[in-house]
Design a protein around this nucleic acid. Structure first.
Lengths: 347, 347
DNA sequence: CGGATGATGTCAATCGATTGCATTCGATCC
DNA sequence: GGATCGAATGCAATCGATTGACATCATCCG
């Protein structure tokens, strides 16, 4: 037998105190509480607490036309960077702002296959979210996002897309690639190579381009041997790594577009009896836990999680307050975390 | 300038087709569509699609008293097991059931500090979730969960709590510990040791107990040297590991309560010039990515993610359909993934 | 042919909170 | 003392969809 308690609604509470529902609504709100006499307000608040009254936010949303809710789309909840950004956006949105404006997140994992996004966007809109944040959008999603943006503000984070112009907060991946290239330069590497992520993602294209430009300008030789992995995961990284190690003309330093693929490279090295990191220098990307907990921690590029999520949250808040807000997309510089795996082996 | 489109509501749609809102509501529903003449139904559906009509689920929820929404509490979105369970629960809840009953998840990350749970539960209840799933509840949360359970079904997953009797889906951690102990036995280890997670969590207490019982019965000597980590993370695991390695009387096999702590142990071994896994056998728990991508993959215990999440989803669905459903808590056996790091070094 | 039956639809109440407007009442001002 | 003002509160419409009760109409049966 389950003890089902019927919830108290505003009407019941009103009857029990002998005061109008309107007064209760005002007394319990943040912005209209000043319209109620202090004595009444305290009385109401006490009674509400005693009765265990809890406002029905669905009803409130219906009347207000605003739900204090933000939809968050994330492609993969196992992706450390995405999760960290998402988590920071969420805490940021809940941070007690000027006025107790709390924004509850609605999170949906879309999976990487494209085309699903439309479904989740529709669900969000049906639930009357005040805004939508899309982490890791792909170009395929442009149309669906565009449509959603006609109804509520849509903010992109981590990955922006070129087809449409939406407010975004991203990492300057080109700068990240350049950072690694210059690191290799500083350590006198003359023959380098990349393990690229799938080039369908702008993220990886930018990392690749940023790296290559610096190499070209400095006259460093960049090998291009089967450099693009089919997916940004360690097994694919290992496949690329094996192709690289199979060439007679080995690079002295390798830039992996993320830490997982870097790990694949390390495995491949070990498998071939090469010593990590002494025989071939390697630098990853993202500063994931993986890179830190390796027996020998790996140099990597730190993703500007706090800045990206902070800007995304700012955009959302500003746009909710004012749809016409003249927003600015921002891209933040990543930083190299030098753990020494990028140095050149003394000849 | 933002192109703000006003949404079409049911009234507008009704006026445009010249049919009552009630008919539209029925035509678009799954369960009452049969009450509408096929011709009218098709007409309405076509018109709705053409007008881009999307039902306001807040209004529907208000009227129905049911939101088709499930609140999910998760303590840490970086925890691989929790995320995997959560993800499977979500896809399971959305699986097109008997009748297109889709349950949208509301996800909240609670963080490990206790006491916050009440806040999230209240938010969920205010948003009128039909049920709540709590992953990784702690004993401190008992009261808050109990209160919530008076209003909607509450299901525990991954971690159940002893203070109250709620439907739950868990892993049989005692069996997991025993599994590892027997594995060590089979490989003729006679002196073993555990790196335990914080004993405030039943999960770890059960793993510890299951392991110890088997050891005791088999007459295997279990060392107890500073065996409990303050947190189930690699750095803490390493601290415990160092204490273990510092004793003159070393175990030949170590059971770490999760893979992170096992990794800490491996680091400590390397630091002391010991070869992993030859010098001391080690087995972890959870079969996380970490354990698989190690240069030398580690034996570990596979968490029955699919079974736990499947049962949790079943419980939720059944209880939403019928509050009085006579539920059954279930605990599922984990499995040993033998990658050879638990064998005894040939003397 | 009258009335029962069933298939389709319409009407209007309802869910619970919010808010513009009206009302009340005491205080203040001329 | 009557008008005016402002503070505090009540009244009632509203948000958008759902659903029980009822109306309409064709059909069918005895």
């Amino acid at each position: 037998m389950v003890a089902t308690m019927k919830r108290v609604n505003m009407r019941a509470l009103a009857d029990s105190i002998g005061v109008d529902r309107a007064t209760i609504s005002r007394a319990l709100s943040t912005d209209k509480a000043h319209l109620v006499a202090p004595a009444t307000r305290d009385l109401i608040r006490a009674a509400a607490a005693a009765a265990g009254y809890r406002a029905d936010l669905m009803a409130a949303t219906l009347r207000r036309g605003r739900s204090d809710t933000v939809g968050i789309l994330v492609s993969d909840m196992m992706n450390e960077v995405l999760v960290r950004v998402m988590r920071e956006i969420v805490t940021d949105l809940n941070r007690d702002q000027t006025r107790g404006q709390e924004l509850t997140p609605l999170i949906a994992e879309t999976g990487d296959g494209s085309g699903h996004i439309g479904h989740f966007l529709r669900t969000f809109l049906s639930r009357r979210v005040d805004a939508i944040i899309c982490l890791s959008a792909t170009e395929d999603d442009a149309e669906a996002l565009q449509a959603a943006a006609r109804e509520v503000p849509v903010v992109l984070a981590v990955r922006s897309i070129s087809a449409i112009d939406l407010p975004s907060a991203t990492c300057d991946d080109g700068a990240g690639g350049a950072l690694v290239a210059r690191h290799f330069l500083a350590h006198h590497h003359r023959v380098v190579c990349q393990i690229q992520g799938p080039q369908t993602a702008t993220t990886f294209r930018n990392r690749a381009a940023g790296f290559s430009v610096v190499c070209r300008e400095a006259g460093v030789r960049e090998l291009s041997i089967g450099t693009s992995a089919r997916a940004a995961i360690s097994s694919e990284g290992r496949a690329v790594a094996e192709a690289i190690l199979a060439t007679p003309d080995r690079p002295t330093a390798v830039f992996a577009h993320n830490d997982s693929m870097a790990l694949g490279f390390i495995e491949a090295m070990r498998h071939q009896g090469l010593a990590y990191p002494d025989d071939i220098a390697i630098v990853g990307f993202n500063n994931t836990e993986l890179s830190r907990v390796l027996a020998r921690p790996m140099s990597t590029v730190e993703y500007p999680v706090a800045k990206v999520s902070g800007h995304a949250a700012d955009l959302v808040r500003a746009l909710i307050k004012n749809r016409e807000f003249s927003w600015e997309s921002k891209s933040f510089d990543p930083q190299l975390v030098d753990r020494g795996t990028g140095v050149k082996r003394p000849a």
